[in-house]
Design a binder for these strands. Structure first.
Lengths: 408, 408
DNA sequence: TCAATTCGTCCAAGCTCTGGACTAATTAAA
DNA sequence: TTTAATTAGTCCAGAGCTTGGACGAATTGA
């Protein structure tokens, strides 16, 4: 499984150079061909030819001449064409389904969340409902003259990404489900092959594109829901580990003498900072079957208690924050991220939990690095993973536009 | 700092394809051009041309025709030429300096370790001594008709790799030392630019090339010495994190109520499983100033006690193993490696520590993954990092042979 | 001895980038 | 108003690298 070096042909060269130019256009738009030649190092001839190809594919648009007052012939500005190609992001989660259409300019063109208790439904029916959602999204895109180039599905569980299967999704009760096959069977064929990824990873990527500015290229994104997971992003790419199980923050042991966890360990983070553990410690009645989000959910009840200064709730959240900080300290020592982004329930609990998180984090990450990493809170909503999924499609087009070229 | 895509020209294409062919030769040698065309997908023409270029550079050798009994014209086998180009690995550590010359065939051609207490010497003198060692090594290579293409230095501390400086090396007492400049000033110019890296990272790479078979592409290598560090290798490449501090296993908190650590934290792994902590707990007199390795060192004394079944020593090592296993469990949850390799002192202590390590590891890595990762013990000696450094030079030649082409 | 087979080289052709020449469109100066 | 200077973009010949078919070389099996 060592890093393979693949042969490069003329076509490969062309494909990569298209990506170089498209990337530079996206970074600097509107921008002239001459400037592109400058920054890429290509000759003007080459840039013209590459831009022409991108224009043919509908990925790039000519904005007309710009008279900037400088002397010399005015440039014709080029920019990314957001009105032709889009990506579709889909998400299956415990208590909702989500879809999202994102155009090449990273504007959200369609966004739809449906509450649905997926815990007691068969996989086929869940995917069926998701397919319907996807069809609606594709139709909505079509009405805006957008072509959906590809789709990515976010799933809460461990996946066999190559085989397109869900291995296990404990919170859904799934085991070995051919999710991708079920989905693509119900959809019109897309230019790019569909893909699936873990919900935590995609939520993390969502943060990259829609969250706290594009500067956080290496970070850990905590997506605390029923479980506590983390998406690790390094230089803009998801870090998966050898088998795709990296980022299992929830099962880092905090207290070796703590309560037994379903994973077999003792005192896992999830047993202290998981949603159900927090609610229990805060004295909020157990509500396993019904939806946990929403204004009437137990999370809202917890926040209300916190607002009222309820001591039991405050101490439960503090305890959770401390445990999270401890686990994150281990993550920082091992992964050295730039930033830590708290999402999921920790985003809502931040005002009360963060002091404890920061204190524990600072205690556990010593003088080795000059300062503990930045701690931020996600501003993304519940469908962060769907956003990230759609953004991944867009990203794929941007890094390999040749896939959408007319004769390919 | 996002992942940049760089322009590809004909030269780039050629360079990568040279690497493809050289890699395939190294993997399958001896191998015919025809077979190379098969496995790479290149035409026979292209393979011939690439092989010719590699042969001109002295990186590849023709072995003459092989008559394999098959019918048809016999093939002329091609293989990596180990007799022309070599890499130089250098290592500065607390109590020794090491140098190592490795040829392209990954055979060790020269290996030299000098005991030296570098704790109380000025950086200039240490690097001076290292330069002398390097010169000897280059001369030794020359006598075997080998050209040293480049050098990599292993240093125990935090580095500014781009600037070629050591930021801090606590165990050496260094602060902001321009190590690379000092070294290259004293050496003849090499074809490849020199480089430096952390000792733990290079020791981990050493394991990849010389250790437990080439199948371990993703692993965590624990290099327990005075401190406890870990080198993280993913798909054959070192994982550094955002600032190069990844793998600080030694400061993962094991016991929040434990002893205070120099890093400011409490109950860091290093305070329980660091060499000095183990020796202290085992009741072996403190020996800070003198060399800790060697047959008369305290480590040997500890092993002797363990062999005699000394209860205090045994329990100290068990406790260290348990703590190490706990920290590794966190690492497994976060990084999902294939394998864990124990090096440094843990290699010597393995017979007594490993049961505890494995138990703690199994306890902390639950059902998420089917089984805890493989646990192996390094068979490499003290100069693992020097080996890894030399291997890194060789690796660099293999992944970009164009750097050594006549007209480049 | 001849046919079959495989290996490696040769040569023309195709794809892509390069680089200088050229046209186009504007501003500044005469 | 005319002219020179300047910048943008296109055109075209040329160079680098890979492709693909043809061909000679070297061996085995009939």
């Amino acid at each position: 499984m060592r890093n393979e070096i693949t042969p490069v042909r003329h076509g490969t060269m062309r494909a990569r150079n298209l990506a170089v130019v498209l990337g530079e256009i996206s970074r600097r738009q509107p921008v002239s061909r001459a400037r592109l030649a400058d920054v890429t190092g290509f000759t003007k001839t080459t840039v013209s030819s590459l831009v022409a190809a991108l224009k043919d594919a509908g990925l790039v648009r000519e904005d007309g001449p710009v008279r900037d007052g400088e002397r010399g012939r005015p440039a014709t500005a080029v920019s990314v064409n957001g009105d032709r190609v889009a990506g579709l992001g889909l998400e299956v989660n415990v208590d909702y389904l989500a879809a999202c259409v994102l155009d090449l300019g990273r504007r959200i063109r369609h966004r739809h969340i449906v509450a649905a208790d997926n815990r007691c439904r068969e996989p086929e029916r869940v995917i069926g409902a998701l397919t319907a959602l996807a069809e609606t999204a594709i139709a909505a895109a079509g009405e805006q003259d957008l072509t959906v180039a590809g789709a990515v599905v976010a799933l809460p569980g461990t996946l066999d990404r190559a085989g397109g299967r869900v291995r296990t999704a404990p919170n859904l009760g799934w085991r070995d489900v051919a999710a991708e096959e079920l989905l693509t069977a119900g959809l019109p064929p897309l230019a790019l092959p569909s893909d699936q990824d873990n919900e935590a990873n995609l939520a993390a990527l969502g943060e990259l594109w829609f969250g706290d500015g594009p500067d956080l290229g290496s970070y850990v994104h905590v997506s605390g829901e029923i479980g506590v997971g983390a998406g690790i992003v390094v230089d803009g790419r998801v870090f998966r580990g050898a088998h795709g199980f990296a980022g299992e923050l929830g099962h880092v042991v905090i207290d070796p003498d703590g309560p037994l966890c379903a994973c077999g360990g003792r005192g896992c983070l999830e047993q202290i900072a998981g949603q159900e553990a927090i609610l229990r410690a805060a004295g909020i009645p157990d509500v396993t079957a019904t939806s946990t989000a929403g204004p009437d959910g137990p999370l809202a009840a917890l926040v209300a208690l916190l607002r009222d200064g309820d001591e039991r709730a405050l101490s439960a959240v503090r305890r959770a924050g401390e445990a999270l900080g401890q686990a994150l300290a281990a993550a920082v020592n091992l992964l050295d991220p730039d930033t830590i982004v708290l999402g999921g329930i920790f985003s809502a609990l931040a005002p009360w939990a963060n002091p404890a998180v920061e204190a524990a984090l600072a205690r556990g990450t010593g003088i080795v690095r000059s300062a503990p990493p930045r701690l931020t809170v996600s501003r993304l909503g519940g469908d962060a993973a769907a956003l990230g999924a759609a953004a991944l499609v867009v990203e794929r087009v941007m890094t390999d536009p040749a896939l959408l070229l007319p004769t390919a």
